[in-house]
C-alpha cells in the first residue's frame, strides 16, 4: 500500500484531539473550577494534581506530545483549506472556518498559558497557586486573553467532537449529525459556563 500515511496521520490527529487532549481539557476545567470554592480549595486541588505520581511522564505523554502533534498537523490542515464562506455561507461551512480559527487561537493561548503557568515554574521555580492566577487575571488585557483563549479551546473541542464522530463513521445519517450538532453545542455552552465561572473566581 503506497502512500497511505496521510490516512494514519489524519486519523491520529482526530483521535488525539479527543483522547487524551479532550479528556485532559475536561479534567483541567474541572480541577480549576475548585477556584469557585475559594483560595484554599483551589490550592488544595492544584497541589493534588502537582503531586500526582509519574507527573513528568503523565505531562509529557498525555498532554505535551499529543498537543504538539495535534497543533502542528492541525496548522497544516488549517492552511491547506481555501475558505469560502463568502460564497457558500452554509452553517457547516462557518463551523468549518470557526474550527480552524479557534484552533489557531487556542494554540497561541496554550503556548502562552503553558509558559506562564508551567514552564516558568519549571525554569524559575515560581509558585503556581491561586495568588498567581489572581495576579495574572487582574490585568484586564490578560483577562480578555484568557477569556478568548478558554472559549476558543472549548469551542474547538466541542465542535471537534462533532467532526470526530463523522470522521470515524459514528454519526452517518443526516439526522444523527443534526442531533450531534445540538449535543455538541450544549457541551460548548455548559463547558463555557464552567470556564468563565472559574475565571471570575480568580478576581
Amino acid at each position: 500500500m503506497a502512500g497511505s500515511r496521510e490516512f494514519f496521520y489524519r486519523r491520529l490527529h482526530s483521535l488525539l484531539g479527543v483522547i487524551p487532549i479532550g479528556i485532559f481539557l475536561l479534567q483541567h476545567l474541572t480541577v480549576n473550577h475548585f477556584a469557585t470554592g475559594g483560595e484554599s480549595s483551589f490550592n488544595k486541588a492544584a497541589d493534588f494534581m502537582a503531586n500526582l505520581p509519574f507527573r513528568y511522564v503523565l505531562e509529557i505523554v498525555i498532554i505535551f506530545l499529543p498537543i504538539l502533534y495535534h497543533a502542528i498537523y492541525g496548522l497544516y490542515i488549517a492552511f491547506t483549506a481555501k475558505n469560502n464562506v463568502s460564497k457558500f455561507s452554509f452553517f457547516r461551512n462557518w463551523m468549518f472556518l470557526l474550527q480552524r480559527i479557534t484552533g489557531v487561537i487556542t494554540l497561541i493561548f496554550i503556548a502562552w498559558h503553558v509558559w506562564e503557568t508551567r514552564l516558568a515554574n519549571a525554569v524559575y521555580g515560581t509558585d503556581v497557586n491561586f495568588q498567581m492566577m489572581h495576579d495574572i487575571l487582574s490585568s484586564p488585557f490578560m483577562f480578555g486573553f484568557y477569556l478568548v483563549g478558554i472559549i476558543s479551546a472549548i469551542f474547538h473541542f466541542s465542535n471537534g467532537l462533532w467532526s470526530f464522530m463523522v470522521t470515524w463513521g459514528i454519526t452517518i445519517s443526516p439526522r444523527s449529525q443534526v442531533i450531534s450538532t445540538y449535543v455538541t453545542m450544549i457541551i460548548f455552552l455548559a463547558l463555557s459556563i464552567v470556564g468563565v465561572q472559574t475565571l471570575f473566581a480568580f478576581i
Binding site: R5, E6, F7, F88, F90, S163
Partner: peptide, 12 residues
C-alpha cells in the same frame, strides 16, 4: 491512500 478520503474536513 494519499489524496483520498482523509482530505474531507466536513464543511458539508
Amino acid at each position: 491512500e494519499d489524496g483520498g478520503l482523509t482530505g474531507c474536513g466536513n464543511s458539508q
